[in-house]
Simulated scan of single mutants.
Amino acid sequence: MVNEIFDQFHKIATAPRAQMDSYLQQGKKVVLTSPVYTPEEILHSMGFVPMGAWGADVELNRSKEYFPAFLCSIVQSMLELGINGAYKGASAIVIPSLCDTLKTLGENWKYAVKDIPFIPMTYPQHRKPAYGIAYTKAGYERVIHDLEKLGGKFDAAALAESNRIYNRHNQVMRRAEEVLANHPEITAAQRSDLFKSAFFMLKEEHTALVEQLIKELEGTAPAAENLPVIVSGILTDAPQLNAIMDELGFHIVADDVAAQSRQYRTDVPEGEDALQALAEKFGNMDNCSVLYNVEKPRVQWIVDTAKERNAKGVIVVMTKFCDPEEFDYVMIKKACEKADIPATLIEVDRQMKQFEQIRTNLETFRDMVNM
């Protein structure tokens, strides 16, 4: 039964267009949500299907007319897909302003993909103080206004219910992450499919499927431990990367990945004003390279989690030209060295076709850790 559930995750994770078409055929409107954090609860409450747009492993051609070669390939591939019609049928795309490259994506999108309206979500750097929360709330109100132009209707009670649905999904995903840490037989590829599929499904549907998986795994005896590691980065869904990790016997016991567990660490707090509570959620978020915090608690989080999960090493998967991640890596490396936790860096790109250098790096790292 476990494999059957993972097959469902895999089908959705590898064929998001089919999932999108299914929702469109049901008469639903789809709104794309780009990295890293978008207010999906608002979209959900207004009757739209939020669907993640994190790009794909495609050759970049038309996007080069708008971007220089040294920008993040995730963002470039998103624009490439938009120009090529891969997102055709979507009612809009919401793009947050959490890094410089995302800011340029929104402006370029307006000219390159004119049939899918761009909705900006402008976040403050200082998100925790009252003025930062007020700024975030104003940004959400702007999103609501733009969604109303598309036929959505905002209702505070509906948002409160969507907040509850998303909180429940967060809790289930956190529990799933804990359960997976105790099951070395679950591959990196399967783990990736579980997280990736969440971007392409209504959260209540994904929650139900993950709950089935948890129930099955909790009733299954785990296999013998392989090599427990933590993986950190923005995106780790490349099939060849996960195949190499599985081939070399790595077991991901925790992750610090923007497209995976980082999405589910923070719930919407209780409150009478659902929109205010949602803004407070963003204020409470942390431990991420694109969330400003001069103290950089993310670094210590990685070290503490590695110790808690008995990880033997940390694998940092660096998305090429991702400035926020590159800035943090130096501190992560130093913190791991101080804590005597082996760490290695591998670099990935949406256009990568050859992974032999990564294989050599990870094979050397495995052998070093096992000495």
Rank of each mutant, 00 (worst) to 15 (best):
M1I: 06
N3C: 00
E4H: 11
I12M: 07
I12E: 08
T14E: 10
R17W: 01
R17C: 01
Q19T: 12
M20V: 02
V31R: 10
P35H: 06
T38G: 03
E40N: 15
M46W: 10
M46V: 11
F48N: 01
G52K: 11
W54T: 08
D57C: 05
P68C: 03
F70E: 12
V75K: 07
Y87W: 11
L98H: 01
K114W: 06
I116L: 06
Q125I: 08
R127V: 05
G132V: 07
A157H: 15
E161R: 13
V172Y: 02
E185Q: 14
I186A: 02
D193P: 15
L194Y: 07
L209W: 06
E211S: 09
A221D: 13
P228T: 05
G233V: 10
T236K: 07
D237P: 00
L241F: 08
I244S: 00
D246I: 04
H251Q: 09
H251E: 09
A254N: 10
A258M: 13
Q263W: 02
L275E: 06
N293W: 00
A311K: 07
T319G: 09
P324Q: 11
I332Q: 06
K333C: 00
K333R: 14
A335W: 11
C336D: 04
K338Q: 15
I346P: 08
I346R: 04
V348A: 04
R350G: 01
Q357I: 08
T360K: 09
N370Q: 15
